[in-house]
């Protein structure tokens, strides 16, 4: 019996030492890890709201939950460049999170996939940048589109899905569509498009 206490005591001491050492390491790395998490959101916001001043992006929070972001063109915050929100939906093997930015008329101006753990070589192609290009081709397809148009080719929409990864493609597309509709409701409607036919000519 005495031996058990002695052995248990030694084990406890070793574990306590280990925990102490780890708490020191944790103190050093914790701010760094939080910084990295913040950077992911920050970079995504800059990609989603290219026309906004990166220093003039505000959060709209309700019950501790970030509903959406407002980006202003200047730090004086007089003109709204657009809104951004995080679209989430379960893909094939993970929840895919995408930061989406729209202008005041509800037209998508930038998107960035922030989190996904889809099948390597298939679903991960939502982030694939082809050789010689600067942005992922799948995500570029969303630029300049409105919520009403969003659907993948298999659902008779204009978004070309990734070969072998329809589930991932559809998850991204539908999450953005649903997110946009929700945002529109929260904002009480987008501004009317200035002249829809003209926009089409430009693009």
């Amino acid at each position: 019996m005495k031996e058990i206490f002695k052995l248990g005591g030694i084990l406890l001491l070793v574990t306590a030492l280990a925990s102490g050492a780890l708490s020191m390491v944790n103190k050093i790395t914790k701010p760094k890890i939080e910084e990295q998490k913040r950077l992911v959101v920050e970079r995504a916001l800059i990609a989603a709201l290219p026309t906004a001043d990166p220093k003039a992006i505000e959060k709209v929070i309700e019950n501790d939950e970030i509903l959406y972001y407002i980006g202003y063109t200047t730090q004086e915050k007089t003109d709204i460049a657009g809104y951004a929100f995080v679209a989430k939906k379960a893909g094939y093997s993970s929840v895919i999170e995408t930061m989406v930015g729209v202008d005041t008329t509800g037209k998508i101006i930038g998107i960035k996939v922030m989190e996904e753990k889809e099948t390597p070589g298939l679903g991960t192609k939502i982030e694939e940048i082809k050789y010689g290009e600067s942005a992922p081709w799948f995500q570029l397809q969303f630029i300049n589109r409105y919520a009403g148009e969003l659907a993948v080719d298999k659902d008779n929409g204009p978004i070309r899905s990734i070969t072998g990864a329809t589930i991932s493609s559809r998850a991204v597309t539908n999450s953005i569509k649903e997110g946009l509709e929700q945002l529109e409701k929260r904002l009480g409607g987008f501004k009317k498009q200035a002249n829809p036919t003209q926009t089409e000519q430009v693009s």
């Binding site: 574990t15 280990a18 708490s23 944790n26």
Partner: peptide, 10 residues
């Protein structure tokens, strides 16, 4: 939470 690995294995 940083102690999870050590706690879980023990």
């Amino acid at each position: 939470t940083y102690l999870k690995t050590i706690a879980f294995i023990l």
